[in-house]
Design a protein around this nucleic acid. Structure first.
Lengths: 209, 209
DNA sequence: AGTATATGTGTATTTTTTACGCAAGTCAAT
DNA sequence: ATTGACTTGCGTAAAAAATACACATATACT
């Protein structure tokens, strides 16, 4: 199974699909399925994601293994969970695709009852999500284009569940040398126009918090 | 497979077993084997460790999954790696057991050629080892009884591959409130007798570095 | 007794984190 | 146009943490 996250307007969301087979027919679940004998783990995961949601998710990373004897009601099943994030632009573009395939984005504090042990798997993946943003691993994926600092701060606050002082957050972010000023400003957003930054390519990852 | 580490006289070591079957007959490898259909992952790992090495290793944690299509020359094989540490006292006690079962401790910079992709698995587990000691997760396991500060410092330096200023290391360790003075000193060790400390039970884990 | 070696303790300096005041740009209502 | 509400941007002082470094002390060996 894959836990694919995004942050949409300051809300952390996860990608879920509706099951079309027994067991757990009609319930929501993490996208995923059985691995073919001749495919690598990550390839299989990407294939399943494409089949079940229509989305191509690059940058999948291994998360954990779930293998309790009775985690599936039918047969012994070992589940390998994967972890991914996509940026807000892709979210908007692909929401239409999802409608045709019974998939959708759910805010992580408004998750419906899930099949199997998928609630547990999501909790585990959320830990990974927090680690990843702290390690600045997924910054570039979440912000492939330009962004404003208040924007990026909201993402951090949403994922980590904390609040930061605006001025200190800015100072920290800029001092890490991970992002650079584009020279432009984002109008049409709020009150005062915010400066636009972009992620610097090829910068070594530093711990942020 | 399980990567079981210890630190013996300032040297980080790993537990390996000699293979008694094809493929890779006679080569060294990480202890492990096939999971039974009716046992949980961790239980199976503990059983395999007992069978192959005669050791009981508590505190196993999941590490990673290795599933490349051709990682085994015979059949498709998904390997789940586990990570464990044991303390120096157990190492000494159990070295005799190991001799009868073709198992042994190897310094991590003197590892023989290994079966399968076990070199890669060890590298991955070493990362986990570093994280774990930084997070103070495994301190209590490595030091169940009392210890001296120079001792614990050598362990950190061995695992993390760095050197710390004696005085600053001490200051940091004590300020974390994770360990407490036993009031006794370790004689028969070096020159000046070192104070003995013990790990405080039930202390919340803090990041150390 | 003298020397070598390893441990324990203190303190000054630098760096990082945190707290917080205030000016500037935009929108909407007056 | 002016005002007020709101949000962004910038700077500075205080607190906390990390770092660098000097000297005293206990033991073993000669």
């Amino acid at each position: 199974m894959a836990a694919v996250f995004t942050v949409d307007h300051g809300i952390t969301k996860i990608l879920l699909v509706e099951r079309k087979n027994e067991p757990f027919y009609g319930m929501w679940s993490l996208p995923g399925g059985a691995l073919y004998n001749d495919e690598d783990l990550e390839d299989g995961m990407r294939r399943e994601l494409l089949e079940k949601t229509g989305l191509v998710i690059p940058n999948l990373k291994q998360c954990s293994v779930f293998g309790k004897v009775h985690r599936s009601p039918c047969m012994r099943m070992i589940g390998i969970s994967y972890f991914g994030v996509i940026d807000r632009f892709k979210v908007e573009l692909l929401t239409s695709t999802l409608k045709t395939s019974n998939a959708g984005w759910f805010a992580i504090n408004q998750i419906p009852p899930l099949a199997y042990d998928h609630e547990e798997i999501i909790q585990d993946a959320l830990e990974k999500l927090k680690e990843s943003i702290v390690e600045s691993d997924i910054l570039e994926i979440l912000f492939p284009k330009e962004f404003t600092l208040p924007e990026i701060q909201k993402v951090y606050e949403s994922i980590l569940g904390t609040n930061y002082d605006r001025r200190n957050f800015r100072k920290r972010m800029l001092s890490l040398n991970l992002i650079e000023d584009t020279g432009e400003t984002a109008k049409f957003e709020g009150k005062k126009p915010a400066k636009l930054y972009r992620f610097r390519k090829g910068k070594k990852q530093k711990r942020i918090f």
